[in-house]
Design a binder for these strands. Structure first.
Lengths: 220, 220
DNA sequence: GTCTATAATCTGATAGAC
DNA sequence: GTCTATCAGATTATAGAC
């Protein structure tokens, strides 16, 4: 006869079953919230509709989240965790862990496509994470810290290419967000700006990291 | 003794005084609406608040606009007229009317700064004109035509630089909107991305119009 | 932890007097 | 053309029973 341990031994925090179920419910609510805003727009999130989606009365949601803003904040937090994970995935490619990148152009190209895909695959998430469109919504310090960490990771990788000038980093982010933004706003569901990513990446790298394009084995 | 003409002779449309006053009231309402959305956010426009700003009961506004969407549409229309005017101003600089531009790099730089200034000086207008953030709002055909005309004028000027490839035009717009978007989202009121405009312009032109950078007077 | 009931407020829009 | 009155409904959030 098997016995369930009273206390979780694998997790670092001592979560009892009640806390686990509670967290599951919170996750379920957030997932339903994402579904809802994808249908109704980011500002179209209402407690009643959210309750319907999750199979609950709107008022019951307040047992899990103190306010609607707290729900937005949880979505913001989760969104940046997903962003950090997507970013980490790209860099976790054989050869790219090296101190000095072996194929910087390829790495940058993969990163650009990944960022573009992340943004355009979920325009509402893009709106929440990267634009200021919900009046009065200010991310909590904790959520904001996740966002900053994701940005720092990107800047660190650029530094690996020898790009440390802050203005060059800004130029790089402007190009990437410009492509994504135009795609979302002017050709949703299409590929008009996706087709120009590779050109944009080489263009930007030639500007911010010209040394990558100098001949590596100069003739003696 | 001077006599006022009974009928306007300068205007093309026969507007009587009543129609003029009516148009003035409509303009006043739209101006108040801009004030309001700059304070409350684009989605924060309500008929009651708008009424307060214009010194009118909310219900009276319906004498001028059939619905709230019609107000958004008038703002959209006016915004693109302003955009077209700002664009025309930049190109109306001595030397730039020529069939073949004499100082294409300077022209492009001025155009970029003008676009950036137009976008960042009024983020809410940027949101209404260039992003899809108001659920269910679709510009009327007439308003949309103004937007298309403004885009065509920009494409025509690029063609004057010898840039006719559609993908090159898309690359150009991506760079410009990327700079503006990052400025609005990540450094509102600052100049972090403004400082990188000139670099971005030369970078983009080298990519989409490399012939501009070839020596113009080759040695014999 | 979920419910009912409800507070308190806001929403866009219409009817009709003046 | 502006008003009062009002509809018909939505909104977030709280109190308290079970």
């Amino acid at each position: 006869m098997t016995v369930q341990p009273e206390v979780e031994v694998t997790g670092s925090a001592p979560l009892d079953r009640r806390a686990v179920r509670r967290q599951e419910s919170k996750d379920e609510i957030i997932a339903a919230a994402w579904d809802l805003v994808r249908d109704q727009g980011l500002a179209g999130l209402t407690m009643r509709d959210l309750g319907k989606r999750v199979g609950m009365k709107a008022q019951s949601i307040y047992s899990y989240f103190a306010s609607k803003h707290e729900i937005y904040d949880a979505m913001f937090h989760q969104g940046y965790l997903a962003f950090a994970a997507a970013t980490a995935d790209v860099w976790a490619i054989p050869g790219s862990e090296a101190e000095v990148a072996e194929d910087p152009l390829g790495d940058a190209r993969r990163a650009a496509h990944s960022f573009f895909e992340f943004c355009t695959s979920d325009p509402v998430r893009y709106q929440l994470l990267f634009q200021r469109t919900i009046p009065d919504f200010v991310p909590s310090d904790e959520s904001f810290a996740v966002a900053v960490a994701a940005y720092d990771a990107m800047a660190a990788k650029l530094a690996g290419f020898g790009v440390t000038d802050p203005e060059s980093v800004d130029l790089w982010t402007a190009v990437l967000t410009g492509l994504s933004d135009q795609q979302i706003s002017n050709d949703p569901g299409g590929d008009r700006w996706e087709r120009v990513i590779d050109r944009a990446v080489e263009m930007a790298l030639r500007e911010i990291a010209p040394h990558l394009f100098e001949p590596s084995t100069p003739s003696p």
